[in-house]
């Protein structure tokens, strides 16, 4: 890009929008593999994806987050994203500070891959999301995953790491709700300006909403 673009306060926006768009596709692919998800109506699948997408992106990005440099690495160690980079995509510290705190806390739980994946499934299948029709079906699917997670921790996660682990994981879901809320607030502000919303991808606009249309 031309030099002056790098100095604009939104220089990272197109790049981050691409990354998020790619991640949304991964979230959809993941959701489709959750037992029972595809049996929900298309409307309920869409409602769940729209409301949980940013939470799953935050959850899955923990795998690339490093406590050493407090940064996310992307496609190898030479590409790293720090808070500073995300502020250049229009997000403020009101989102990014708690987000990094969340990443640190989650990293310290030292989850097994199985636990991490189950947590993402439980997050997607939240029965209290707005716009859901069949809340009780979603709840029963979520209950099933919660039971699997608790059984897994009991049988496969040795002490001392397993101590209150399930409760700590559920607390992370609560943290994600407030991160989601703050993200929505900041996204609304950002997408309200056509010069910024035009830098987003069609998928991002569809999932997070398009204030202009």
């Amino acid at each position: 890009p031309p030099m002056d673009i790098n100095f604009s306060p939104f220089s990272m926006l197109p790049h981050l929008a691409d990354l998020v768009s790619y991640s949304i596709q991964k979230v959809i692919g993941f959701a489709k593999m959750i037992p029972g998800f595809r049996d929900l109506t298309a409307e309920d699948q869409i409602a769940l994806l729209k409301s949980s997408a940013i939470e799953i992106i935050m959850l899955r990005s923990n795998q690339s987050f490093s406590l050493e440099d407090m940064a996310w690495s992307c496609g190898g160690n030479e590409f790293k994203y720090q808070i500073n980079d995300v502020t250049k995509a229009g997000h403020s510290l009101e989102l990014l500070e708690p987000l990094v705190k969340f990443q640190i806390g989650l990293k310290k739980l030292d989850l097994h891959e199985e636990e991490h994946v189950l947590l993402m499934g439980i997050c997607i299948l939240s029965p209290d999301r707005p716009g859901l029709q069949d809340n009780s079906l979603v709840e029963s699917l979520q209950d099933r995953l919660s039971e699997v997670l608790q059984t897994y921790i009991l049988c496969k996660h040795p002490p001392p790491g397993n101590r209150l682990l399930y409760a700590k994981m559920i607390q992370k879901l609560a943290d994600l709700r407030s991160l989601n809320e703050e993200h929505s607030k900041q996204y609304r502000c950002l997408s309200f300006k056509p010069e910024h919303s035009m830098q987003l991808t069609p998928l991002v606009l569809e999932v997070f909403g398009n204030e202009i249309s």
């Binding site: 959809i28 595809r38 699948q45 869409i46 069609p202 998928l203 569809e206």
Partner: peptide
């Protein structure tokens, strides 16, 4: 809202993709 809930074309496409 009305437009949004009716459409979601990309989401629908990505959900149906690869289904047999």
């Amino acid at each position: 809202k009305k437009k949004e809930s009716k459409d979601h074309q990309l989401l629908r496409y990505l959900l149906d993709k690869d289904e047999k």
